[in-house]
Write a protein that binds this DNA or RNA. Structure first.
Lengths: 200, 200, 200, 200
DNA sequence: TATGAATGAGGATTCATTCAT
DNA sequence: AATGAATGAATCCTCATTCAT
């Protein structure tokens, strides 16, 4: 019996998270309604609130889950590896995320654009700390003459900006590219950009 | 009296546009309320609606005005000029806009992230046409061996993504940079990036 | 097994009655929720409704049980006894109830203040009849010159009002008395009051 | 125009306060709905909320207004006057309030029975202070041999309990008295009670 | 041009109750 | 006897918009 309940619970919670991601990533928190989420999840509104205490609880759970994965690729940069390869690898992982998880990217973008009211502390704490660490690694690479001189933080910004652009500005990208798959050219461009910038 | 009215009218319309920009750029269309706009504009809500028929009218007017200026820098690229200088100039103009008009950038970003329901036609029409033209220019530069081979559309995306990032993700950028002015390093980075990518 | 069930049943029914008393006496019928009662009873909400058909059923059962005991002290007044002693005894029994069963008193008070929708008939029937009887007894005592002349019904009201005040207005009483135990002084005061009023 | 507006505002605010008093005094805060108040006030629900920010705001305004008048009679007790006359006068003023403002009394009773969540501070502050003062006056009267020895606080409780009983337990009182006007006998009884208790 | 007043259509959340097991 | 799941009917409150002046 416990197993059955857990199954239903997990199924419905997953459905709600997925529905919430779809809705919140498009309309933002205040622009989304529980009705939309409920319908997307295939549940009644009160039943939605049986699983999550409130609209805010759904959104917060989504953000928390997102942040878990969001910082991961950055952690995988290996100070011992080849600098250009490491940074290319990071950029490619970010690009993959934009390709396969564009809604997560837009959810994050929405939150940041609106002032990051719920994750300001993560930005100033965990994220900043991580970026500081990676920046030190990059600075060391520069000092060792293994890549050209570059401001590490702006380098990171540029990787974020570029890769997330394909998810966040998807509509615009596709309006311009027509039927061409954005991610085909994106990867090559990204590599060229980084090589031009970094290779000694 | 007509003149007086006109003066007041212009003043109030401008106040509403400015207030609307402030509010909509932060909360998106559905996340914003007329009360917020009215208060920011220093007008009563009914008076607001005396100048603009509806909430939607304010937002639409803002978008229209934004698009006017949004495409302008792109048009200033001169096919006859020095390729790198032209593209650097364009990037700098975009960066200036992010620095001095971040709210406009965020308004645009909000609209695009949410699927661009009101400007899809502009994207697929005017914008795409312009990008096609510039792309031809860039392709010509490449063919003439004046810059390295590059996909012109992804190049443009990257300039957009990077420059707008400083406006749209302002909170995140500042969380990471602390007291350092983002735009100091941004310009140098942008130049390095483009030179590395383009210069033969 | 039947016996086991009965044991559990009685235990749970008692738990629900106690929980209901705690909740309803504080928040009134409409101000209370089944969730509150269920939590106080240590049962799940559906299980609560397995024992009592509805929220109303719990409340009604509580009121019925309350009324059983509520009128009892009045019945114990003995027409053959010493008038002052009998009335003092009654007052003390009521005061004891306020001290030891304040929740019952508040439940009753809540019901009466809100217009006694469920017990109007008891008030006009059983209660009135009882009061009429006692009033006759008191009138006889007066006629016999054993106590001073007094309106028997207002005398009864005053005993009710005063004794129940210590339960119903407990918060206020304690706010004023601070650490002093209200019931210490109450009993002496009550006796002085009745003696002053009744003793010939 | 300002006058017209003020007139409507005052009229509607007064209507809401009156409606709120009627509803809240019967059902308590949580047992009352804005619908009930709106209907009683003859206004639409949103219009209700145009005048008062929330249900709570109406209730709080009512309580505040009530407390203003509630303590007043106590302040009128004159230490220089004749002790019995002063206390009789106070009891009569309280009885008048029960007769003419029974809803206010019930609103207060509801709040106290439910634990006085919103006025606990008034009880422990202003009210307690006032009662302390009057108690000192009464103690002085006792010391001067002008009235019999009596606990002043319980004396005050008894006056409150008795007079408010006629408002708060109105339904019960009338069920017992039938067609007899409660306040006829109440005043005489109250006087007898106080004289028996106090007169030397 | 301006505003106080008013409202219909939502929108989040609560809650008593039912259903399935 | 017990509980997880589900829901219709409120219930408080918001908000874009209209009305009257």
């Amino acid at each position: 019996m416990a197993k059955t309940d857990t199954r239903i619970q997990k199924k419905n919670q997953a459905a709600i998270m997925d529905a919430g991601l779809a809705v919140f990533s498009q309309f933002g928190f205040r622009g989304s309604t529980l009705d939309q989420v409920a319908e997307a999840a295939g549940l009644s509104k009160p039943n939605l609130l049986y699983y999550f205490r409130s609209k805010d609880a759904i959104y917060t759970a989504l953000l928390a889950k997102l942040l878990e994965n969001w910082l991961e690729p950055l952690r995988e940069i290996n100070a011992e590896g080849d600098p250009v390869q490491e940074l290319l690898g990071y950029a490619n992982r970010k690009l993959d995320m934009s390709q396969h998880y564009p809604r997560e990217s837009r959810l994050f973008a929405n939150e940041i654009i609106q002032g990051a009211p719920r994750i300001a502390d993560v930005l100033q704490g965990e994220l900043r700390g991580l970026v500081d660490e990676i920046s030190q690694v990059i600075n060391d690479w520069v000092a060792a003459g293994r890549i050209k001189s570059v401001d590490p933080r702006h380098l990171i910004f540029s990787i974020w900006a570029l890769t997330q652009h394909y998810a966040d500005f998807d509509v615009q990208v596709r309006a311009i590219l027509g039927d061409v798959d954005p991610f085909d050219g994106a990867q090559a461009y990204l590599e060229a950009m980084l090589r031009g910038l970094l290779e000694v």
